[in-house]
Design a protein around this nucleic acid. Structure first.
Lengths: 379, 379
DNA sequence: CCCTCGAATGTAAACGGTTACATTTTGCGG
DNA sequence: CCGCAAAATGTAACCGTTTACATTCGAGGG
């Protein structure tokens, strides 16, 4: 028995046409709001006929539930947050695409915030997302452990992407495995004197790639590899400088493994400037398979990282953490990389051909028509 | 006089530590929830001392307002939606970056949804965003007018990006002006026989660029330009095919203007394959300034589009529409483009040098070290 | 014909804020 | 010391859902 009539029952909507509410639908269908809610969420028992009436009413009123009211009530927003640093555009968009696709399939929305330079700014953003999202995917490859722990204290499921990961949920590229696979490829071609161009000291990806390189060098029983390492910072310029230093080495390395593609492109340019022929005199390989890797001359052999897959995995992990907070056990998944063989490496110690010109023209043609040869290119 | 005690007053929070609410803060500060709200939103008069107490209480409880409750109450989400087609990654991420930066500065969040192939899917997404966002930035360059009008009927501020725009708010690239500026550049170099590679028939950007080309050709009092137009669809392959046709023309055009950079890259590749030297025998220019434009050989002269600026403008316009729904008048803004002169065009009818090799090596070096020369490159 | 029981539906209390309006304090002239 | 307007604060309705609990309805058994 109502102690007071429902205040919202009859004359709503003042002047400008407001959106229909669940009360409007209930009135139109001649049922209570509870029944409308039940029908629309499909969880409980409702007579088939009643259900039809409600659906018809909802459709005729173009009813769309108010998500704010819904999340307030169920304390879930069906939205996840993505926090990114000011990262290279291509990578950035691919990660978002991967997460977006996976999320939409599960009825989740994504709230994006990019371009954060420092940890405190990152934490600020995370705070403003509080309540707006059910969980976070955070990418912070250069951030040290302390702020990341702070982040976990935010009492919200968080999945870290490519970050230094002491504990908790995380997804990373299999940098170590990829580096070893690349080294195996070079070794099979006959290389043993392989140089390496390092990435930034504190970058998690860079460290793992270096670790893979060193491990492989030890395994090949080669000379101490430290002399063959060059510093770099993931930029093309640093690769250019490294290439110059490597070309001057005596004896010269027969192959160069750059910790990422940008630096490999720089190495390529400086070797060409120094008159060192690639791949005849020296092989060059990179890591990432960025889009321009296939456009440089010669096209770059590299380890492809499936970035969209990275996003998909991150969402899957986050969803599990959100859905089963009780039983969820923190996990650290690694996504595999793929070797992409192009033209920038061959067997060591091959004499350069005398008339390289027509040869090169042909290469450029192939670069230009990328799509067709690209299909069967992956090995 | 309370007809009934406030039910939420005392014993909240059952077992797991829930986030603090405004009631907790009020209790801690010894004031009412209204006062807390006033302090935190800073709109109304509150004694300085009271304000201090409230702030201290909020901080000590790590209070973060529940945004769902807030948006339900004020009927605003402080969030805008971005709906994108499955567009090239670089463009995609730049648009988001531009909007994100502008939005965050105004305290807005962004909800992103990409990868929509058809109009109905796009409208679905827009419906699920209903109530979640205060307005939308929609990019749909290939969508025809009808669905766009449907979109506007959604009773939410909408800003269209690079779309066919009959009416309503919109931001577009100044494709027409950019095309004319490019034509002026070619004309100043001495070209009059300029070919054009068109984009997709129904694409709004492509049509405007074509319009600029035709207008300029008429202005140059050149022969009827239709014979110099080639069809294309914005892909590299179509550019390759167009280049082949153009090389076979007699008399040959002295310059080719491709409606976008991807096609220009294709043209470049096919001309090289046909033994036509660029820029000595034929100049090639594009539109967009995509990242690889500076890596191709020779580096491509093109019209740069500041995509982030596009995003900024879109947000500014949307914010105005959201904030002043009454007085806001629909606007259609155009963002300017910038001519970027690189190596792919020169004066017509110059004989190719005999030993192009050292010359080319030097070019590649410059490409490799992009950043430094890039600084002063824009004209 | 009454009682019981389960299915179908209704009622109203949350969810956590904002804000119109009511009430209490304050400051100040008389 | 009173009265009164302005300033400061409190009260509770309201935003639109979900959902625990209450109620109604029908059918079947005794």
């Amino acid at each position: 028995m109502p102690s007071r009539p429902d205040v919202r029952s009859n004359p709503r909507r003042r002047h400008r046409a407001a959106a229909a509410t669940i009360h409007d639908v209930a009135a139109r269908a001649g049922v209570s709001v509870a029944t409308v809610s039940r029908v629309l969420n499909g969880k409980e028992l409702v007579r088939a006929e009643t259900s039809r009436h409600v659906r018809a009413a909802a459709k005729s009123l173009r009813y769309v539930p108010n998500v704010a009211a819904r999340s307030l009530s169920i304390r879930r927003s069906q939205t996840i947050g993505i926090v990114l640093p000011d990262v290279h555009g291509e990578f950035f968009s691919e990660v978002i695409r991967g997460i977006d696709l996976a999320a939409r399939a599960q009825g989740y929305h994504i709230l994006v915030s990019g371009s954060h330079s420092d940890p405190s700014q990152m934490l600020d953003v995370v705070d403003t997302m509080r309540g707006r999202v059910d969980g976070l995917v955070v990418m912070a490859p250069d951030v040290t452990l302390a702020p990341l722990d702070e982040l976990r204290a935010r009492a919200m499921p968080v999945v870290l992407l490519n970050s230094a990961t002491p504990n908790g949920d995380a997804i990373t590229i299999d940098n170590y495995g990829g580096a070893r696979a690349m080294m195996r490829h070079l070794h099979e071609l006959g290389h043993t004197r392989i140089a390496f161009v390092r990435g930034p000291e504190h970058n998690a990806d860079a460290r793992e790639r270096l670790r893979g390189y060193r491990h492989a060098m030890r395994g090949m029983a080669a000379e101490s590899s430290r002399a063959l390492e060059c510093s770099g910072d993931f930029t093309e310029e640093s690769g250019f400088a490294a290439g110059r230093r490597l070309a001057a080495l005596n004896p010269r390395p027969t192959a160069v493994f750059a910790a990422n593609d940008s630096m490999a492109v720089g190495v390529l340019a400086s070797l060409m400037a120094a008159g060192v022929h690639v791949p005849e005199q020296m092989s060059v390989v990179g890591f990432d398979d960025i889009p321009i890797a296939r456009y440089v001359n010669p096209a770059l052999t590299t380890m492809r990282v499936d970035i969209a897959e990275l996003g998909r995995c991150a969402f899957a992990l986050l969803l599990d953490a959100i859905s089963n907070p009780a039983v969820h056990a923190p996990r650290h998944d690694r996504v595999a990389t793929t070797l992409v063989v192009r033209k920038s490496c061959g067997a060591p110690n091959v004499r350069p051909k005398q008339n390289a010109q027509p040869h090169r023209a042909e290469r450029i043609l192939k670069n230009g028509r990328k799509r067709v040869p690209e299909k069967g290119e992956v090995s």
